[in-house]
């Protein structure tokens, strides 16, 4: 198979800070896939994007984008990819329209040429066409940045944490835009610290401390969850967490909103009833205790917990 992105044994350290940013990372992205790089801040996501977009040299390893080596063929790579960096990188003193024209011209194109790709997003920006980019709201800035990253019709689009710090409703909207881009035969590689966004990707790589923990479809990751997850609802979650310190059953537990999530590993049904007994002994009021399917955040917690 011709991979859209192929990363083999990639390593990157920042010796001046004694940080290993990427530790033997290997990932392959299929053409026209919506691929998510999911992990917390400091996991190495931006370092990986900077290498993929030819802005940073790795210490070792091999990376190709659309079959082209990111070091030897960096100029060709640059002309075929689109990149939405994690920080706002347009010209604040140019108007919305001028920014778009500027980026189109850089790629020897005109904004009319590929208007069809950006049309749904561009339409929302039209009322602000003459406004300086620096004066736009956060959401509008990002939509403009996305238009500028797409105006040369890239084959693959890299987005570094486009939804960080964005409210849940706007985030949902943004993912719908990403799906629309994918439907135009563009491969989308996107990073996010929000675990709930993982399920919107075709496949994801979970990353922490520079290491890839797992690469699979979201449903495969959920299927691979080792253990049985239970939940219960309580009105005093912090009080319950205090009591849980006395629980000697072999389990992992953590709060999730007004619920406690508990993972049992062997003989789950027996453990669950022993646990119920424990709660009753401590006169904990709870309701709706039941076994549930884990979400990606549960999987992440299970995969990274100290062994």
């Amino acid at each position: 198979m011709d991979w859209a992105v192929e990363i083999e044994h990639l390593n990157k350290t920042y010796p001046e800070n004694h940080v290993t940013a990427l530790d033997d990372v290997s990932i392959a992205v299929k053409p026209n896939e919506l691929f998510g790089l999911v992990g917390p801040d400091g996991a190495g996501k931006s370092t990986l994007f900077n290498i993929l977009t030819t802005l940073l040299l790795p210490d070792s390893g091999h990376v190709t984008v659309l079959g082209m080596d990111v070091i030897a063929d960096y100029k060709k790579v640059r002309s075929t990819i689109g990149y939405l960096p994690g920080v706002f990188s347009l010209y604040p003193d140019l108007t919305v329209e001028e920014n778009l024209i500027f980026f189109a011209t850089m790629y020897k194109s005109k904004i009319s040429e590929n208007m069809s790709i950006i049309k749904p997003i561009w339409r929302q920006l039209l009322p602000f066409k003459k406004r300086r980019a620096g004066k736009l709201s956060g959401g509008m800035k990002q939509k403009l940045a996305l238009c500028c990253a797409l105006i040369h019709k890239p084959t693959i689009l890299f987005l570094d944490e486009p939804t960080t710090g964005v409210d849940p409703v706007s985030r949902k909207e943004f993912w719908e835009i990403l799906k629309g881009i994918q439907q135009q035969d563009i491969t989308v590689v996107v990073s996010t610290p929000y675990m709930d966004e993982a399920t919107l990707c075709d496949r994801i790589a979970l990353i922490q401390d520079g290491r890839i923990i797992e690469v699979a479809t979201p449903s495969q990751i959920i299927d691979n969850f080792e253990g049985s997850l239970y939940t219960l609802t309580t009105d005093n979650i912090f009080g319950l967490l205090e009591i849980m310190k006395q629980c000697t059953l072999h389990c992992n537990y953590y709060p999730n909103g007004d619920q406690l999530h508990i993972v049992f590993y062997e003989d789950a049904a027996t453990m669950a009833s022993a646990f119920q007994q424990f709660l009753q002994e401590h006169q904990i009021e709870f309701r709706n205790m039941k076994r549930i399917a884990p979400n990606i955040e549960d999987c992440f917690i299970e995969l990274v917990k100290p062994k």
């Binding site: 801040d41 710090g165 985030r171 912090f238 709060p255 955040e297 917690i301």
Partner: peptide
């Protein structure tokens, strides 16, 4: 924002602890 799911929960434990000692917490979150 951006913190891993385990630390996020530890952080809220700290918030709760501070509040239980009488500190008022005014917090925004997504």
């Amino acid at each position: 924002s951006g913190v891993d799911p385990i630390v996020r929960r530890e952080f809220w434990n700290m918030i709760y602890h501070a509040a239980s000692q009488g500190v008022t917490i005014f917090v925004t979150t997504h």
